[in-house]
């Protein structure tokens, strides 16, 4: 009986201590943000989907359409159509990334011999159809996304 009462008192005290924590949180600043109206800053290290890099001097893509990334991608989600300029240098006429299958592993970015790929910083990319998730990085890059 005595033990029962001790337990009752101690248990009640423990519940009150827990309630105290909750009450303190009630009057503290909220830790969440109302998402669409307010957004948290993106982490600088975030890695979005791969995108083509431009040469800062000429503005052209540095990619030489060598196909290494296409070959090494574990998900096989890159498809490149190469073309040649009049002077004979290769460039990607079409650089398709199937984002439904990309695992964002970064292997393509890493293996590129001319640093032609980099991670974008876009993360909110909802699409209505599967087809819309297949990005052509050549045109997408020009859109500035």
């Amino acid at each position: 009986m005595k033990r029962y009462i001790i337990e009752l008192v101690q248990g009640g005290a423990s519940l009150l201590a827990g309630l105290g924590v909750t009450l303190r949180a009630l009057v503290a600043q909220p830790v969440t943000v109302p998402y669409p109206r307010k957004k948290l800053p993106m982490q600088p290290g975030f890695r979005g989907h791969p995108m083509l890099v431009r040469n800062p001097a000429t503005g052209a893509f540095t990619c030489i359409a060598c196909g290494t990334c296409m070959q090494r991608c574990p998900s096989r989600c890159i498809d490149i159509t190469a073309a040649r300029t009049e002077s004979g240098t290769k460039y990607p006429a079409r650089f398709q990334l199937d984002f439904t299958r990309c695992s964002l592993c970064g292997i393509c970015v890493e293996v590129c011999p001319v640093s032609g790929l980099a991670f974008s910083r876009s993360f909110a990319m909802p699409h209505r159809t599967r087809e819309a998730c297949k990005y052509d990085l050549v045109t997408r890059g020009e859109e500035g996304t």
């Binding site: 982490q43 290290g45 975030f46 890695r47 695992s103 964002l104 890493e110």
Partner: peptide, 22 residues
């Protein structure tokens, strides 16, 4: 957040590489 900044992803990190880290 810390891991995201370090590895680039929040859950499915692909951060370690053969012979080191990214």
């Amino acid at each position: 957040d810390i891991l995201e900044n370090l590895t680039g992803a929040r859950i499915t990190h692909c951060f370690f590489r053969i012979g080191g880290v990214l």
